[in-house]
């Protein structure tokens, strides 16, 4: 089980971890980080640290997730007392509380109207704009959520988190072209994010999943981005997994096109609107070997429980092993 750490919660919180996290509520709530003494003394005897408020916020979210609304309310009251009612972050947390305690879709609509009212007063509150998208998603209206997120992006085009969300939303609607566009915007802002490169590659790969025969240029782009993701992170399991998938799909295609006349091959390439160089068969073969050996290495070290190899997600390692087994290794 992943550690239940409130200061830096894990990147994937299973219900079990969420329960463990929210069970820390009585301990945290039993002592107040702020001092109850009058003003000059309260400065001297305060025991609050920046970490205490991160912990409070994370605990608040875990309590809401597990339905512990009394603790959540107490934590929210504490945060409000410390930072004031009109703090942008506190307004957002209160909104999340209202969303979580909404019983029906009608209640959620009311929360949504409340957000509209807040935005009329202060149109620059970006976190409330993001909450609006989240509520629309919860209401099962992805099209409206996409519209809301595009409006947000028009006002704040450097918000990388919103670009990532837009990419996911488009992908959930199978609008691959738009999803890839948004994911590429993410790359413009955070060009070193290995997960973003793997995300673009996955989108390219999925966009041609239903095509028969799959388009070579999309596969080549996917290959390129997976290569970049492992170039940025030499132990990126998702990157190697994707690299192996793409190369196994590319190899038969490439050997097919190479056996046919090179003239036809050229014609095919010129028809593509994007000018993507198709990799050579030998390169793809080499990449496939690298991906296989790296995946095998990760699986072996993880299974042996070696120190310094425990950071991988168990489900991902199992999937990698299944991929290797399917391949007959």
């Amino acid at each position: 089980m992943a550690h239940a750490n409130l200061l830096s919660p894990p990147s994937q919180i299973s219900p079990q971890t969420a329960l463990a996290l929210s069970q820390k509520a009585p301990v945290i709530l039993s002592t107040s980080p702020t001092s109850s003494l009058p003003w000059p003394l309260s400065l001297l005897f305060s025991r609050e640290t920046p970490e205490s408020w991160t912990i409070h916020e994370n605990l608040f979210l875990s309590a809401l997730r597990t339905g512990d609304e009394t603790s959540a309310r107490a934590l929210l009251d504490r945060l409000e007392a410390r930072f004031g009612q009109h703090n942008e972050r506190i307004i957002t947390l209160r909104g999340i509380y209202n969303e979580a305690t909404a019983q029906s879709n009608g209640d959620l609509e009311k929360v949504f109207d409340g957000y509209e009212k807040i935005l009329r007063e202060d149109p620059t509150n970006m976190s409330i704009r993001k909450r609006r998208v989240a509520v629309l998603k919860a209401l099962g209206r992805p099209q409206d959520a996409i519209t809301a997120v595009t409006v947000l992006l028009q006002n704040s085009p450097t918000d990388v988190e919103a670009w990532a969300e837009a990419s996911e939303l488009y992908a959930s609607q199978a609008a691959w072209g738009q999803a890839i566009y948004c994911a590429e915007e993410v790359l413009l802002i955070t060009p070193n994010a290995w997960s973003a490169h793997a995300h673009v590659a996955t989108l390219h790969y999925l966009s041609i999943a239903s095509n028969n025969p799959p388009s070579l240029s999309a596969l080549a782009l996917s290959l390129k981005h997976f290569c970049r993701s492992i170039e940025l992170n030499d132990a990126y399991l998702r990157g190697y997994y994707g690299l192996k998938l793409v190369t196994t799909k590319l190899l038969p295609l490439l050997s097919e096109t190479q056996s046919t006349s090179s003239k036809r091959n050229n014609n095919n390439n010129s028809q593509d609107d994007e000018d993507v160089p198709i990799p050579a068969l030998a390169t793809v073969k080499k990449l496939e070997e690298i991906a296989t050996s790296k995946l095998a290495e990760i699986v072996r070290h993880y299974k042996a429980g070696n120190k310094g190899w425990r950071g991988f997600d168990e489900a991902e390692v199992i999937a990698a092993r299944e991929l290797l087994d399917r391949d007959g290794n």
Binding site: S11, E99, A100, K130, V133, A134, E161, S172
Partner: peptide, 24 residues
């Protein structure tokens, strides 16, 4: 880059993108 929430694959259940946290 965990805040991008792109680590769980398409439709993943990661904890990234806290601004869009789907409490429901």
């Amino acid at each position: 880059y965990a805040f991008l929430g792109l680590d769980g694959g398409i439709g993943g259940k990661g904890e990234g993108r806290r601004g869009f946290w789907d409490v429901k």
